[in-house]
Design a protein around this nucleic acid. Sequence first.
DNA 1: TATGAGATTGGCT
DNA 2: GCCAATCTCATAG
Length: 220
Amino acid sequence: MPQPDELAQPEELSTLSKVSTPSALRRLHRGELPSDTVLLARYLIGKLLVHDVLDGRLSGRIVETEAYVSDDAASHAYRGLTTRNRSMFLERGHAYVYRIYGAWDCVNVSSEPPGTGAGVLLRALEPVQGVTVMQARRGTTRVLDLARGPGRLALAMQIDRREDGVDLCAGGPLWLGAGGAAAVVIGESVRIGITREAERRLRFYERANPFVSGPPRLRA
DNA sequence: TATGAGATTGGCT
DNA sequence: GCCAATCTCATAG
């Protein structure tokens, strides 16, 4: 028997009151994005990821990111340009979507100047709009679990490798947004699920937000 | 050319 | 807690 807070809520009540009304939503332009990967990873916490699809608008508040900097052995771009990672070398604000473990797609935002391979992995969202569509795609009614984790996030947001290389700042259906003024308390930790460069504290998240992934000590 | 590991998740023990 | 699913790349032969 699901608990009340796990059940689907009406669209207008699904944001835990942390996000401003949709009317305040606006697109981020590239000039607002920090070029530096770590600064971008921090900057994106509290911003919105929006995907306008046939079923309507899907959006979520970004609550967890990881930085994959240049000269980082954990980064897909560490050994140079390949067909898979080429989007990491684009100008900041492009999507890098890759498949992991043969099963799940993960979404990154490219960073650094063109030609430098780096990016910010989006690890978790707090769903804002299109919750019922996300529930159908994810096969669960648990709003907390819809986009908690990078593979879940991509599935909920209807993002797959077709979006690889898309410019998130070009006025297209997949974009980055900002809502009203909401104070964000950012925590940092080591990154999740990697072995190389495991000691670097390049994961950022909104403190105490229940939509953040990872064990409790990495969410506090 | 073959094989193993990886920025994960869901289902089962 | 363990394990399979199954794609891309690095490394070995």
